[in-house]
């Protein structure tokens, strides 16, 4: 948990909501759902120490390991 990054991201997310909300008031519910869930995803991920965490990129690197070994030679 890194509070600095998390707090920074929270401020940015709040600014994005303030900036976009007036424009999207009349939009269908689906749009708002997508907007907020994507923001929430970013916010949640910013809580972790993401650089050291195993994630999709690391899995893909492992998945293509045989090719990587071929390129190493």
């Amino acid at each position: 948990m890194r509070w600095g990054t998390f707090l920074g991201t929270t401020v940015i997310v709040a600014l994005i909501i303030l900036y976009e909300w007036p424009k999207m008031k009349q939009n269908p519910k689906k749009d708002k759902m997508a907007f907020f869930s994507l923001l929430l995803m970013g916010l949640v991920l910013s809580m972790f120490n993401i650089q050291q965490m195993s994630g999709p990129t690391a899995w893909i690197v492992t998945f293509f390991k045989p090719f990587g070994e071929f390129m190493e030679k």
């Binding site: 994005i16 269908p28 749009d31 994507l38 916010l43 991920l45 990129t57 690391a58």
Partner: peptide, 27 residues
């Protein structure tokens, strides 16, 4: 993909996600 009415809505949220992916498992 999500059948949204306007693509401009997801610009900023996706920006945050992209930066997150830039760091993810890349020390």
């Amino acid at each position: 993909w999500l059948n949204l009415s306007d693509y401009r809505l997801v610009i900023w949220p996706l920006g945050i996600l992209m930066i997150v992916f830039g760091f993810w498992s890349m020390p």
